[in-house]
Nucleic acid binder design. Structure first.
Lengths: 233, 233
DNA sequence: CCGCATCCGTTTCGATACTG
DNA sequence: CAGTATCGAAACGGATGCGG
């Protein structure tokens, strides 16, 4: 039984032959945060049938996107991780997320806000056209959790680092705080980023608070669209 | 019957609720080249069931991605086009295409090389990290067709134009030729871009030929990876 | 021809239960 | 913990029909 394919000479359709099936890209999204056990993936993908997850994982392993490794551990038998090829899906996940951001409504009770995806959500919100060449580190201390955002400095003229590769996020709180910091909630950040609340309003109302040097705060405000009101992608 | 949804508070999964179904992103890909009639879309999507196309189009119209317009024309009743929201899917299609490029094999007889997708394929091949700040225009006169590639100049320091937005392609041959020109085949360009053939080899063998100023040719070579051998995304 | 709608066999998905 | 097994529901694929 030959796997079904769009069968066109086109990069996008070839890609969708590999990652276009249901759930596949969400598995990638979760694996982008690091290796996971089967159960971790299942818990991070509520609503997905167990057999389907197993099936997808074997497909993705066959496609060379995912690597399965048996480990010696009392409470874990195997770890799934992305291969180098699988890591190349990060720009896809980010692009998809950027598109979806304006459609994202506030979480309801039946919409789990999974801890694992907070960093991805933050990375998605950053306005890449506002990245400063010099780079910056920002701690986001939100009600829903902590995220360290690192914008890698541009390496000078010549070959430029793609914008997406310059945005890095981590849920681990380093020993030392970043010089720039923002506190509040994901919802407030999202409202501002989506232009439904101005940055000034968010700060005045206390929904968000920032600290750090003047210049860094200015960069932060640009990165999350504090100055805009109109909705933008 | 509530449309099925991943139902997670996550931008990527929200996006996939809208564009994750089979064929949807390929419809977008074809509409990115401009408005199309129903029949045009069907011809550009071989293998897709006719009723499914109709169904997808109505879904996408309901989601605000596609606009349907009745027109007065002897041999066309309606035109489908992307809305502003739909246009925001271009980065997604390009990111997906970039991922799929290394998996793309040479076209076989049963894999139609559809004229419409040639410009998208070219845009996908361009190495965005090699975009010159000054911009450039290149005519690609390939066996499979003509494409004018335009790299929009960077607007100076400050807010930067996202790399993807700076790459524009058009199948229309303007009145005047671009100062830089490349001739050959899509296959040769793809081999070089994928690092399976060096640029020098392609030029020596005559598989590709370039003309233009020294500097422009150097830019062209960087854009399509003429200097590399190893496979890269 | 253009723009779908109907019908129908096949595949995939979703939910839950079950096993080593 | 890490999957299989099962089964009904939904989606898909292909062909064909049909009014404007």
């Amino acid at each position: 039984m030959p796997k079904r394919s769009y069968n066109q000479f086109c990069p996008a359709s070839r890609a969708l032959d590999l990652i276009g099936e249901r759930w596949t890209l969400l598995i990638v999204r979760n694996l982008l945060r690091g290796p996971r056990r089967y159960t971790d993936l299942r818990d991070g993908l509520p609503g997905m049938a167990s057999n389907l997850l197993a099936h997808r994982l074997s497909e993705m392993e066959a496609a060379g996107l995912v690597h399965r490794e048996e480990i010696a551990d009392p409470n874990a038998r195997a770890l799934y991780s992305l291969t180098e090829r699988g890591e190349e899906l990060r720009p896809v996940v980010v692009a998809v997320g950027r598109f979806g951001l304006p459609y994202l409504d506030m979480p309801t009770d039946d919409q789990p806000m999974i801890d694992e995806m907070l960093p991805e959500a933050i990375a998605t919100m950053v306005l890449i056209e506002e990245l400063p060449d010099s780079g910056i580190e920002i701690d986001l201390d939100l009600d829903e959790g902590f995220v360290r955002l690192i914008v890698v400095p541009q390496a000078g003229p010549g070959r430029r680092t793609p914008a997406l590769a310059r945005v890095q996020v981590s849920p681990d709180r380093p020993a030392t705080n970043a010089p720039t910091r923002i506190t509040g909630s994901v919802a407030a950040l999202l409202w501002v980023r989506r232009g439904e609340l101005s940055g000034a309003e968010a700060l005045d109302s206390g929904a968000l608070a920032v600290e750090g040097g003047r210049g860094d705060i200015a960069v932060l405000k640009r990165l999350f669209g504090f100055s805009r009101r109109s909705r933008q992608g």
